[in-house]
């Protein structure tokens, strides 16, 4: 474990140095993310220009949800996104060989090659929005709420990780896995909606098979809807997270058995 932490510290340091070499690009990516985020807030403004509540959620509760979604997804992007998005290319070119020969677990090696610091900054924007929305709601979270929030967020990041990892692993079977990576953004697109709007078969699919609607909803409800008991949601999120992590690990191992390197 200690060895993994040491390796990870070096990776993070290298990433920071590399990103500082491209300061303009770093800043421009932050502009992209900021525009995107502003667009979402404008969307909420439009929605609540039409109605006063959506499935029992008020405007600032939904803003909290979108802020939490920003925190969770940007944390995922900071630590894992670039690495997982690069996996199909590693498989296609056969450079995955190198990862497999390293004296660490290959899934770890593939998942932690670099850290994106611009995403970390963007997750702080999410923290700012959540704080602002909480002030508008007039609620101050107690220590218990903050603790539950701190537990729920890593589960959310883990779900993002597992789903994206599963999609990237498809590259063992399909040469052009680019569409799967697109799929990640399409899937998590709906993670920003209050879970109460979903029903029927899709509610089941997106809660248990691909647990994307819980990811932001569970931590957001802890903060913005303290009158609801959070424990059922947390238990569901934790169970679904473990399931999806185990399933994608199995998929990865299955894929590795198929992998035959490219050139050799």
């Amino acid at each position: 474990m200690k060895r993994y932490l040491a390796i990870y510290r070096l990776t993070a340091r290298n990433s920071l140095i590399r990103e500082m070499n491209f300061k303009l690009n770093f800043l421009l990516w932050m502009v992209v993310e900021l525009l995107w985020f502003l667009g979402q807030l404008a969307f909420i403004e439009v929605l609540y220009g039409q109605v006063d509540e959506i499935a029992g959620w008020s405007k600032w509760q939904v803003v909290t949800l979108v802020g939490v979604h920003q925190i969770v997804s940007q944390l995922f992007q900071a630590f894992f996104y670039v690495n997982l998005a690069a996996l199909p290319e590693l498989v296609r070119t056969g450079r995955l060989d190198l990862m497999l020969t390293l004296p660490v677990d290959a899934q770890f090696a593939v998942s932690t090659r670099q850290v994106s610091f611009d995403s970390l900054v963007n997750s702080l924007v999410g923290v700012g929005i959540v704080t602002f929305a909480m002030m508008k709601l007039g609620t101050v979270p107690g220590p218990m709420q903050l603790a539950l929030f701190a537990v729920a967020v890593p589960f959310g990041v883990a779900v993002h990780y597992a789903v994206m990892f599963g999609l990237s692993c498809m590259s063992f079977w399909f040469i052009r896995a680019q569409s799967f990576i697109h799929g990640y953004f399409n899937l998590f697109h709906i993670g920003r909606y209050p879970e109460a709007v979903f029903g029927g078969v899709f509610r089941f699919i997106f809660t248990w098979l691909i647990p994307i609607i819980l990811v932001s909803n569970v931590p957001a409800k802890v903060l913005a809807r303290p009158f609801e008991s959070p424990f059922a949601g947390l238990a569901t999120l934790a169970t679904a997270t473990v399931l999806v992590l185990v399933a994608t690990r199995a998929l990865w191992l299955l894929g590795l058995r198929r992998y035959g390197s490219a050139s050799s």
Partner: peptide
């Protein structure tokens, strides 16, 4: 790509139904 593209449409329909 289009199968995944349907997911946002599903979300949109549910959202507006709730609206």
């Amino acid at each position: 790509r289009s199968v995944f593209g349907i997911v946002p449409l599903i979300g949109t329909i549910y959202l507006w139904r709730a609206m």
